[in-house]
Design a protein around this nucleic acid. Structure first.
Length: 890
RNA sequence: GCCGAGAUGGUGUAAUUGGUAGCCACGCAGGUCUUAGAAGCCUGUGCCGUGAGGCGUGCGAGUUCGAGUCUCGCUCUCGGCACCA
């Protein structure tokens, strides 16, 4: 140990030592309880940013804590290395995406090592290597066999910037998840995974992870799955009246099926409205008049239009001239088509009930359709005639109520009617109770080079033929012409495309699309368990030891996509017999983003790259930065808080921070500055506080470590001064332990700072300290150093070595997290606040043993208290043992 | 519009069950050391008031001996979803 704290020296030293002693490698045969600590694997796009540092510091603190608590900890890392940035870089810089990716991995791995994150590097994986993506393909074939992978033509989300299709999850809000640009719609043949088969389980199994996952994530997934319960109802379709044939009262057996959650409103139906792509429109299209056809074309065009998320879409529709019969009322109603009915949801057709649905109301008003009222608030409110009320109706009445004008059902409540009417429809063969989901199947085809090829072959005589397992992996060619035109680059590589059909051995063509990279990340955490297995993604008996993941840590941005896909994948794996549980991640922690102040030129709106010294911020009365000026030329800048990144120029880089302050300080600051789930605004001043804290502890160890070698092994006679330090030590152990258990990582740092401050108050020179002081200090500093290890492992190792005289390392020395001893944490003396009418007036000193009666007497006798009670009537005295006394006076 | 989370000093935050609001830091001010500075160390720092004291956890009510915490109503902020029938 040097006198001065040189982070760059001790950090490099301990990183080397850890690598040599292989102390972070998880042992399959270790019999201690296991703990699988997992952080979301990074995309190797060049550099880690401070958000990564936060994510991995949280995971590392937890991994260290669990190791010190006696767990066999698995803490792996890998690379989510397929994906578009590599391909974009390839197009832009004419480099091979493989080389670009491998170079980035080398650099980021170096950054991880400089951060000193305690990974088991023997388990490192990378999605872009054939030994990994072989099993993406293997899983795909397994799903194909199980009927979970299928190909269909569909209207997909298309990102014009990234030139690829996107899943619904990736195009949420009409915005590309990666580049943030608006998506378009395109018709493409693509492969889908039948995630909708698992919709109910994805919803239902949430009860297994409730409590372990943040409520907002579960809610977001629940909303995304969007279960709604209702009924399918068939309306009989009559021949079009323009065919000059009489309707013949439902003699045709054609029908249109709608989905509704409000079957109780069925007597209020004024029309059946179908999507423009609905088969009824397609089948009858040639029979429609030119005018109707033109209107339908217009609706279709409107659907392809990219809509502004803020824009209130205008409803447009067309009366097709077709008629349908409402089997409940026997009424004949028109069939319309409109842009507000979605082909992708339910049956692509709805019953329009304008009086009791906002959208139908708006539509009926626009096209002057009747608005019959069939639900009223209660049975007392009489409706004389629907027509009369229509005039007064300003908005749809969407609440439940009592049925009116509904034939034999009138007078029933909505709840009764919903139940009975669905039954009635089922008994009479024109409907059934039904559940629908908003969730769609997962489109996984991507027209990209840098992904796992979909292992399928198209043969003119045999059709679609899966690649036989023994031919996996279907390897990507060395390179392919990447022009960014939207066609799969693999289609332009004849050696790849042309293949013999595995069935008939005639010439055939390979599928040229690659798999969505979210496939890679849906199961990667199983591969860490058995990363070198060449036959299977992993051996089930090995996985059995480690999974499910005990703690998963990552950004909230993955609340729906990745976490939903990974849950789905695990359920499929369970059905395949690979795992035995339903949910992959027992506990999930979503850390908040690290944001920085980004400055924009006021005039041009362009980003300004800055350093702290170049910009003078202006703050409002609350201290919030509202603007800034550039010091050099005084030009005005706008300010926004944005996720830190290199491209936005608002970030400090981990390399710089580590270079200046050290990795330990960066980690202490990021964990201390805010609760892990909060957004963290980076400021350089904060990290200096973290350095000061580490230095204070370090200086203390430097001053005392020689003297402490003479500290007695067992407790000598104690004075109250030394006992106080022991109390503080054990109170701190309790706070830190409890907070770690509930994943509150900021407050333990505060507790450790308090303990450090308590040590700082010891004014005697170490060489003059007596036995009891040496004992108490020795206990305190050892506990402090060990509890600091999860936050600042390098500094902790260095101080631990100085204190023990051994360079073996904390974990190799079998050092354990300090044990809390309740009797030592007890205070001799406690301060009891005295309130008068709930207001704090005084304090008295007592002990834990002081009885209620004594406390009451002490309070009433207290001089300051009497100033507020004298001359008043004491109504009662509330005594909370060891807490407070409240005197109630009148 | 719907769903969810939140609002505490100049700033980040703390306060497991209703029991001393503001722990721990940052910042700021003063002091000490120094030729000077940096670092370190010491003191102060919710607001008003010289003081006793009063006020104070977004706003308004309520429950309670006692409310940052519980209940009701409102305002605002952030996040998600959004023509989902």
């Amino acid at each position: 140990m040097d006198e001065k704290y040189f982070p760059e020296v001790i950090e490099e030293k301990w990183q080397q030592r850890w690598a040599e002693t292989r102390v972070f490698e998880a042992d399959q045969d270790d019999s201690r309880p296991k703990f699988y600590c997992l952080e979301m694997l990074p995309y190797p796009s060049g550099f880690l940013h401070m958000g990564h540092v936060r994510n991995y510091s949280i995971g590392d603190a937890l991994a260290w804590y669990k190791r010190l608590k006696g767990f066999n900890v698995l803490h792996p890392i890998g690379w989510d290395s397929f994906g578009q940035p590599a391909e974009q870089a390839a197009i832009k810089n004419k480099v091979n995406p493989r080389d670009w990716t491998e170079q980035n991995i080398v650099h980021i791995r170096e950054q991880f090592k400089r951060l000193g994150i305690s990974y088991d590097w023997t388990r490192e994986i990378a999605a872009h290597r054939p030994d990994y993506y072989k099993f993406d393909q293997w899983f795909f074939l397994k799903m194909y066999e199980r009927g979970l992978a299928y190909k269909k033509d569909s209207l997909v989300n298309w990102c014009p910037v990234d030139q690829t299709t996107l899943s619904n999850e990736q195009a949420s809000g009409g915005i590309c998840w990666r580049c943030g640009n608006q998506v378009e719609k395109r018709h493409v043949q693509q492969w889908f995974l039948r995630i909708t088969d698992y919709a109910e389980q994805l919803l239902d199994d949430m009860k297994e992870i409730e409590g372990g996952w943040a409520e907002n994530v579960l809610t977001m997934q629940r909303n995304w799955i969007g279960k709604s319960e209702g009924a399918f109802i068939d309306f009989t379709v009559l021949s079009p009246d323009f065919s000059r044939q009489p309707p013949e009262g439902g003699t045709q057996n054609s029908k249109v099926r709608v989905f509704t959650t409000r079957i109780d409103t069925i007597y209020g139906v004024n029309a059946v409205v179908v999507a423009a792509e609905h088969e009824i429109i397609v089948n009858h299209f040639t029979e429609f008049s030119d005018e109707v056809r033109a209107q339908i074309e217009q609706i279709r065009r409107d659907k392809m239009r990219v809509t502004d998320p803020d824009e209130e879409p205008e409803k447009i529709g067309a009366d097709t001239g077709l008629k349908a019969v409402n089997r409940f009322s026997g009424e004949e109603i028109p069939i319309w088509t409109a842009n507000y009915v979605l082909m992708e949801y339910g049956t692509g057709a709805v019953m329009s009930v304008p009086a009791h649905d906002e959208r139908d109301f708006e539509f009926a008003k626009k096209y002057n359709l009747p608005i019959p009222i069939v639900i009223v608030q209660s049975s007392e409110s009489k409706v004389q005639s629907p027509e009369q009320n229509e005039e007064q109706l300003n908005e749809a009445f969407i609440d439940y109520g009592v049925l009116v004008n509904s034939g034999e059902w009138s007078g029933k409540t909505s709840a009764e009617a919903k139940r009975e009417m669905a039954q009635f429809a089922a008994q009479n063969g024109f409907g059934e109770a039904a559940t629908t989901y908003r969730l769609r199947d997962w489109g996984v085809s991507r027209q990209r080079f840098w992904g796992a090829p979909i292992p399928m072959i198209y043969c003119d005589s045999c059709g679609v033929v899966p690649v036989p397992y023994e031919q996996l992996p279907v390897e990507l060619p060395e390179s392919a012409p990447m022009t960014g035109t939207g066609e799969s680059p693999l289609a332009k590589v004849p050696e790849f495309v042309n293949v013999a059909c595995p069935n008939c051995h005639e010439p055939a063509r390979r599928e040229t699309d690659t798999l969505d990279t979210f496939v890679d990340s849906s199961w990667y955490f199983y591969r860490y368990l058995d990363p070198h297995n060449t036959e299977l993604p992993f051996a089930p008996q090995i996985a059995h030891k480690w999974t499910p993941v005990d703690q998963y840590i990552g950004g909230i941005d993955h609340a729906v996509m990745h976490l939903l896909y990974a849950r789905f994948w695990t359920k499929v794996m369970r059905d395949m017999g690979l795992v035995k549980f339903n949910e992959p991640f027992t506990r999930l922690l979503n850390q908040g983003m690290v944001v920085g102040e980004t400055f924009f030129d006021d005039a041009t709106g362009k980003r300004i790259y800055y350093t702290r010294d170049e910009v003078k911020p202006e703050r409002d009365v609350k201290g919030k930065v509202i603007g800034a000026t550039l010091k050099i030329d005084g030009s005005r800048l706008k300010v926004a808080l944005e996720k830190m990144s290199k491209s936005k120029g608002n970030g400090v880089t981990p390399d710089d921070i580590i270079h200046i302050y050290g990795s330990d300080a960066a980690r202490v600051f990021e964990l201390f500055a805010a609760p892990v789930e909060n957004e963290l605004v980076w400021n350089d001043a904060g990290i200096e506080g973290a350095v000061r804290f580490i230095q204070r502890v370090y200086r203390f160890v430097w001053r005392w470590h020689e003297a402490l070698k003479k500290a007695p092994a067992s407790e000598p006679e104690m004075s109250s001064e030394s006992r106080k330090l022991r109390q503080k030590t054990h109170q701190t152990i309790k706070r830190v332990t409890d907070d770690f258990e509930r994943l509150q990582l900021n407050t333990p740092v505060a507790a450790l700072m308090e303990l450090s401050n308590a040590l700082g108050e010891i004014k005697i020179a170490p060489e003059e300290a007596n036995q009891e002081t040496l004992f108490a200090v020795n206990e305190a500093i050892n506990a402090l150093v060990l509890m600091l290890a999860p936050y600042a492992p390098h500094a902790a190792e260095e101080m631990f070595a100085a204190l023990t005289g051994s360079e073996a390392g904390i974990l190799k020395s079998n050092a354990a997290f300090p044990e809390f001893q309740a009797e030592l944490a007890k205070k001799d003396e406690i301060e009891i606040p005295i309130q008068v009418n709930g207001k704090l007036r005084s304090r008295v000193l007592a002990t834990l043993e002081t009885s209620q009666e004594e406390l009451e007497a002490m309070a009433l006798a207290d001089e300051k208290t009497r100033e507020f009670t004298d001359g008043k009537q004491i109504v009662k005295v509330v005594v909370v043992p060891n807490r407070l006394v409240n005197v109630v006076v009148r």
